[in-house]
Design a protein around this nucleic acid. Structure first.
Lengths: 222, 222
DNA sequence: GACCGATTTGCACGGGGTGCAAAGTTGCAC
DNA sequence: GTGCAACTTTGCACCCCGTGCAAATCGGTC
């Protein structure tokens, strides 16, 4: 089977050191089916990254990616809706998390801005994939306008949920318009992401939240 | 010629009342060639809007649009790079305007935030097409995620120029990081645009800038 | 090993988008 | 108005993206 060869190849080529579980128990507890599925997904993302980095998004065909990953084209589209999605590796956002509930309930500090920072931090701290893969995805996205578009659209897609969350938090007597607060939260997330990427994708993304907020505050109140 | 019939058709169907020049002199000064070109472009945008409004973006084929506009498919792609672009009618941004120079030079008030407001106002006041067409484009964009993505990407594309502009303004001793200021300007533009659209696309878009800034300030400093 | 459900694959197809060269228009000079 | 140069439109061939469908293959289980 070519698959196994390619699989090994991929993990050697781009070792991820930050899979949270790391326990062999979990790996086997998941079952071969699930493990294979995840492996294929990462394998496809890695192959896509490698080729796009080398040749550019438009010069890479899905066929080429599949050839590199040892998978049929049809299978590729079982995993991703489009070629672009394979670069970004987008996954539903964990907006329904514990941190979200805390925020909606008025916590953790009781002040809107710091609590927004906490929320953004929590979201950024729960990345949809390994850091190095994520960094590569953002790296490519900031080069290829079409990818950046997809990324922004993906964030914007969650705006509805975010507005809802803010409305829960603000209650009947807003004082702020939920639209603007939600848009600001997305903005904050985006800028922080870009900062993290510009800093080489090292360390935790949320480390940049505070400095971005500080800059914005001074801009708004100089 | 079917073209002429369709052309009349289009202008009756969607009368634009805010073409700035309006002078017959200018129209003829432009020459038949240029006038025809612009007419076709608007004709295609209008046909696209009509069909997409009725059937949705994905259900409308370029072929159908061209049939409705009385133009060959190949010609469509002489005017727009993609079907999506025909909805949005994007055009290079007038960032190299007088207002931009004033901003870069430190004016008009000498305070960064108000001057940013002026800049955004100037940009929003110089729309790439008639107001009603623009409103329809934004309307559709806020419904179709893919279009919103394109729109955001289009704005993001100008970030480079904007950063440069901010750098000119701030000089050697920034005090603010140009990246964040530029990103903020884009954000402000976007939110204001959405406000304007949500308000029905009536009146001048820049009328909403001040209130958005006020809200953001109170959010950042409560 | 035999069965069920999940996954992969090949195939056919429609639509988006481009390069090219032929045909048609426009602008201009005489 | 004739003729020419520049520009635009068009048809055509072509490649790639993405999907529906049904057959084959694989994983888990008894």
């Amino acid at each position: 089977m070519l698959h196994l060869v390619q699989q090994v190849d991929a993990s050697v080529d781009a070792p991820e050191q930050d899979e949270r579980p790391t326990l062999a128990e979990l790996a086997s507890a998941l079952g071969l089916r699930e493990r294979k599925k995840r492996a294929r997904r990462e394998q496809l993302i890695d192959a896509t990254h490698r080729l796009v980095e080398r040749d550019g998004l438009d010069a890479v065909t899905v066929e080429a990616i599949c050839e590199a990953a040892g998978v049929s084209v049809r299978t590729f589209f079982n995993y991703f809706e489009s070629k672009d999605d394979a670069v970004l590796g987008h996954t539903p956002w964990p907006l329904a998390s514990e941190a979200a509930d805390v925020f909606a309930a008025g916590g953790p500090t009781g002040h809107l801005l710091p609590d927004l920072e906490h929320l953004v931090t929590a979201v950024l701290d729960d990345p949809p994939m390994g850091r190095s893969r994520l960094a590569r995805a953002l790296e490519l996205a900031s080069r290829e306008p079409r990818l950046l578009a997809k990324h922004l659209a993906w964030m914007e897609q969650h705006k509805g949920q975010l507005v809802e969350l803010v409305e829960r938090r603000l209650g009947d007597e807003p004082g702020h318009s939920p639209d603007v607060v939600a848009a600001f939260a997305l903005f904050l997330t985006h800028v922080t992401f870009m900062r993290w990427d510009a800093a080489g994708g090292q360390g935790r993304a949320p480390d940049h939240v505070a400095s971005v907020v500080r800059e914005l505050r001074s801009l708004l109140t100089d």
